[in-house]
Amino acid sequence: MSDRQFDGLVSVRQVQDQGMITVRGDLKGKKIATELKAATGVDMPAQMGASVKGASGILWMSPDEAMVLAPLGDAPALAGELQKKLSKTHALVVDVSDARAVFELTGPNVRDVLAKLAPVDTHPDVLALGALRRTRMGQVACAFWLMSDTSARVICFRSVGDYMFGILSSAAAPGSEVFA
């Protein structure tokens, strides 16, 4: 997929260099928390949390599922390494970098653009920085988190990446400010 970008209320850009590894297992277990921290350099997030530092991080997807973020080139090796380290724990590790699409939204209206598409209260009092929200946007499932007050990342299945880019661009169309 080519680099895509749309500039409007926010700029929508497809992130091409994000590696993603799904880890399933008991996230409260010590072994998984230790290994994921060693692999990413960040602490295991709390319920519905996202701890991300640069291209590395851990997203809390459900009580037994975490998404490990890593630079794209490192993902296959890291997945293999995690698989080996967790081989004696009840866990499953899969490199899903090619199965997911990631979009970055940048601009002061980022909360408004997210709120147009997802049934989520994006007010700063409710959706804090460092919180992950798994929900739907339009017709498709997705997860998103705010990296700062002016930028967010959205993850969805790559098979619906075109759709996601389309609805994000449309929600960010110039002149469609929520509070104009």
Binding site: M48, S62, P119, V120, T135
Partner: peptide
């Protein structure tokens, strides 16, 4: 009870 979040009917 697993996410701990209020979910809209359309998410369920």
């Amino acid at each position: 009870p697993y996410c701990g979040l209020d979910k809209d009917e359309t998410e369920l």
